[in-house]
Design a protein around this nucleic acid. Structure first.
Lengths: 115, 115
DNA sequence: TTTATAATTCCAAAAGTGTAGAAATATAGA
DNA sequence: TCTATATTTCTACACTTTTGGAATTATAAA
């Protein structure tokens, strides 16, 4: 992860950042992380965040397109969950860029802040 | 940082993600991190990434608006540099959401990957 | 099969974004 | 002051995004 990312990877990380780059979608991701690993039913997400069904569906599609969330059907319900692997990749990329490949930030500044 | 962020902070992090959510701007940030803490002259960034001056100026403005980059003038040249504090905040937020507040990702998965 | 609920897809519209040439501004040196 | 260079601002435009009501599809239960 500390190695130089490819052009394609940079584009992918940019798309992932863009997917988390709206208030609505960042809240969705946070909610799904809090409910990890079970996730939440779409309707419950919408109710919690006050987002109309069709709007929510579009946001979830965007997050799914970037593989930041996964979905599984359970009868009429669609359970959405955060994709921890993808988030780990993104976090690893940002960490590497800031702390490892370059020394702009001390690793401890992140890790110890969160103890 | 591991505490619950305010509504306003979430909005701000979303805006920061959005600022890094295009190929061009993510490359700019990477370049400035590599040149940290000196930063780079605007023209040099444009030359390196093949971005026309006016387009680059808009991207830099967006990054400046989100406080992800800083600028200082040196005669005719404008030196842009990454704002490590802002990046640390953003990284800390993502780390906290994924690894601390929720346990979706093991902290070691990030830190040890980058040793 | 009819009904009910969950969620998506269709459709549309307003707003925002990315791009870049041309003109303007800032600074310094001759 | 005139000139040269660096950069931004002006202007424009195509494209994408966000939003949400209405219609449709999916699933299951009565």
């Amino acid at each position: 992860m500390a190695v130089k990312p490819t052009e394609a990877q940079i584009t992918r990380y940019a798309d992932m950042f863009a997917a988390m780059g709206t208030d609505a979608r960042l809240r969705i991701v946070r909610l799904l992380l809090a409910a990890h690993p079970d996730g939440m039913v779409a309707g419950e997400i919408g109710a919690e965040l006050g987002i109309p069904a069709s709007t929510l569906s579009h946001h979830l599609e965007k997050l799914r397109n970037e593989d930041l969330v996964r979905v599984r059907r359970e009868s009429t319900f669609l359970w959405y969950s955060a994709n921890a692997e993808a988030l780990q990749e993104l976090l690893g990329f940002l960490y590497a860029e800031c702390c490892t490949r370059n020394k702009a930030i001390q690793p401890q500044a992140i890790v110890t802040l969160c103890k």
